[in-house]
Design a protein around this nucleic acid. Structure first.
Lengths: 213, 213, 213, 213
DNA sequence: CATGAATGAGTATTCATTCAT
DNA sequence: CATGAATGAATACTCATTCAT
């Protein structure tokens, strides 16, 4: 009575581009649907995008969508979770950067910009778009994983005394808020990743939250 | 295609609450529609809100909407322009504050928070929501008026040397981006206007853009 | 979020044909939808009948259906309940016939045949069609009212000694089962109400349940 | 448009349970599809039952259905014909019972109840369900074979003077109508085959059609 | 023979908008 | 001005059937 039960593991990873070796026909269709939906949801918005449109862009029949996703909303959630995991991985990698919180955040900022240049739609969907009540609990949990990882970076900075006192949650939010302004331009292809506005914006993000003497 | 031709002047002002003196029956209906739509658009989103829902919330018949607005989209634009003018007025008032750009921006930040506490939906609609291609040229122009006024404040700071060099547009954007984080919480009634997070956030907005030695 | 809330009382009665005086435009549309759906559900079956078909037959737009009924299924239930009340009224009238249970059942049999000749579709829908899980609790309750009234007639016959001992429910069921065979032919317009098969069938219904010496 | 061309003889017999001796893999799959469809069609109805559902219940892939049956409708017809032949055989066996029409019909009634207890779904499909225009000519012919056999029994009773004058067709119909009420309960597992309601109902069927002095 | 991904016509339902009253 | 019944195009989703593997 409902399709898309068998979730082949690693589909998220494949969505992000790596891996390959033995991609079945069905997996390819899945991919094309993901790319098509990602593109349309981010350029037009979820509600304005119709299922015939997604199918057409993916080059498949409309019914095929429902062999891969339970519903249009579920498709959005899959996309969103992919974005959240993608973002969380960047944070984890940045956390491995040697140095203090400042260095790690700087690395993260650059990584976010670079990744956004590579996958503008994913960044747009996860960082810049509001999805209100369309997200399910699982998606919210995945997003929280990202936020917690970022907050842990900020908490480290607080412990070092390099970031302002006050809720780590708040400063993580502020830092990301400023960085998002850069991501917005990059994602919209208004700014290439080495645009003159990027570096100052990332620095501004740091200055907004660094401890003041 | 035929309704809502007569533009009654001052409808924006009435939306903000002032004025009174001889409010006709029709004006009252207009008001109720504006409030209903504002509430629904901001809590649920434009696309999810249906015209029957708006009518019901306003306590009028479905068809009545079209005696006051040409279309649902036009209604959104009216609301948006109201918000833009409301915001522009706050900037203009802040500009009159004595002192340097820092003082004026500080005043503006406080005013934005206070105004958002009074009219959360208006702030939400104008500052926090993306409307993509729903806005018409007129609305975009009105929004630009606000942005230009804000940028002029920032430019003044740059001239004074208190704000970083670089595009005034960029720093206005950054400053507003951080302030918006506070407005978001206030608008969602998570933060009262005197919440402990407000002041630090406003300060962070300034620190993100102030000239560094 | 859902239509057809205002149930103007007497709509069932009007459906059965009586009453008139001040029939609004909306009531007329309601009527036409009822007749169209009745005809189609009984000739083709519920699942095979599509909403465009109903609308077309009623001479209205498809969306109009949903101003009068919450759903296709609700429309069926409305029809069914109308039939159940119509049938229950016949039982009550037959109960008023002077004489014993035999006379009353005979009167009821004739009344059912006559009524079926007048409203073949209503009889078909209520007596001859199975609706499985499509019926809601309200409909089931209304149908029970009819059955209980019939069983009370049978119980009276048992008390008189003119009907076999055993569950009144069973004999009511048997009697109606045989009578339904006649209704089936009448409803299908294979038999006019005075066809030679009618009277013997009604007598057979009685003989199936009358007490034997 | 290309499957299920080869009519493997005896598929009906296999459906009824007998026969065996070298049942190939394909025959087993056929069996499972038949049982699954029978179960679903009778519990839910034909239109509500989907082919994926049938396949799932049978434990085969969706496409496999079409290696055994040309279409969902053809599957129903196969099932129906199986039921009709099964019923016709019971009539023929009852006809061999020594004695008059009364004895033969009594034997048939008991046999029908017993068979229904063994194969509730088959009885339900053939006796209790209406299939309207879903049945093809072949199915209708098979059903007529059953009816004619039954009518011949009744005609014999008329010749003996033990059954009422009038169309044999009518009295066969009436007798079966009453017996079906019992079959209904037995098929629904509400009545075991030796339930107290069975015998009186079978007697009532006879009394409905027996000649009266 | 069996599979199951793909198909695309078909379905019930919604909703912005119109217009007679 | 206000009403609310009517509209019909548009929407997400289903399902019997096909066919390459």
């Amino acid at each position: 009575m409902c399709a898309a039960k068998r979730r082949n593991p690693g589909s998220g990873a494949r969505g992000a581009g790596l891996d390959s070796r033995a991609m079945t026909q069905a997996d390819l269709t899945h991919q094309r649907l993901v790319r098509a939906a990602l593109e349309l949801f981010t350029t037009q918005g979820y509600h304005v995008t119709t299922t015939p449109e997604i199918a057409k862009k993916a080059g498949v029949a409309e019914g095929t969508i429902y062999r891969h996703f339970q519903s249009k909303q579920q498709l959005l959630n899959d996309l969103y979770r992919g974005g959240a995991r993608w973002a969380a991985k960047l944070v984890k990698e940045a956390d491995a950067t040697p140095g203090g919180a400042r260095d790690k955040l700087a690395a993260l900022g650059r990584a976010l910009v670079a990744a956004t240049a590579r996958e503008p739609a994913v960044a747009q969907l996860f960082f810049l778009q509001r999805h209100g009540s369309l997200l399910d609990d699982e998606s919210r949990k995945t997003a929280r994983d990202f936020r917690l990882a970022l907050e842990s970076l900020v908490a480290q900075g607080k412990a070092e005394g390099s970031i302002k006192a006050g809720a780590a949650e708040l400063w993580a939010h502020v830092w990301l808020g400023v960085v998002s302004l850069a991501l917005d331009h990059v994602s919209a292809r208004e700014w290439p990743p080495d645009h003159a506005g990027v570096q100052p914006t990332l620095e501004a993000a740091w200055e907004a939250i660094r401890a003041t003497v």
